[in-house]
């Protein structure tokens, strides 16, 4: 169906800077949003490190994924989710994150995955 809008859930599971996986996932998510798809982001595992505030990517002469996250609103991406267990394991709390994210328990997380038309985990 050309022109159909789909809900596309992108899973970010890698820590920033150590590899390009998360950057590429974010690039793909922003591209999908630019094509007017309904984009959702889910941070799990080491991916939740993206949500830590005060990152200074300039120290590595690296592109700041935090800045990309700040720009999500311009792409109409408001469904940003984080796995509660992954946050707990890393002593992060929902209130201390760099951007607003809905913290999900396991059942809600599985429901989000079930409801998405398409799920991408790079």
């Amino acid at each position: 169906m050309p022109g159909a809008i789909k809900t596309v859930l992108f899973i970010l599971h890698s820590a920033p800077y150590g590899s390009s996986t998360a950057r590429e996932t974010l690039d793909a998510a922003l591209a999908a949003a630019a094509f007017e798809q309904n984009v959702q982001l889910l941070f799990i595992g080491d991916g939740v490190w993206h949500l830590l505030p005060n990152q200074q990517a300039s120290a590595l002469a690296s592109k700041d994924t935090g800045k990309m996250l700040q720009a999500l609103g311009y792409y109409d991406i408001s469904d940003v989710f984080a796995d509660s267990v992954s946050l707990d394991e890393r002593q992060l709390t929902g209130e201390s994150l760099a951007i607003t994210a809905k913290v999900l328990d396991k059942n809600t997380l599985q429901e989000i995955v079930r409801k998405a038309d398409c799920v991408i985990s790079l």
Partner: peptide, 12 residues
């Protein structure tokens, strides 16, 4: 191990 962990977290 983390790949199966993620899968099992997301699967119903």
């Amino acid at each position: 191990p983390a790949t199966l962990q993620r899968l099992l977290l997301c699967a119903s």
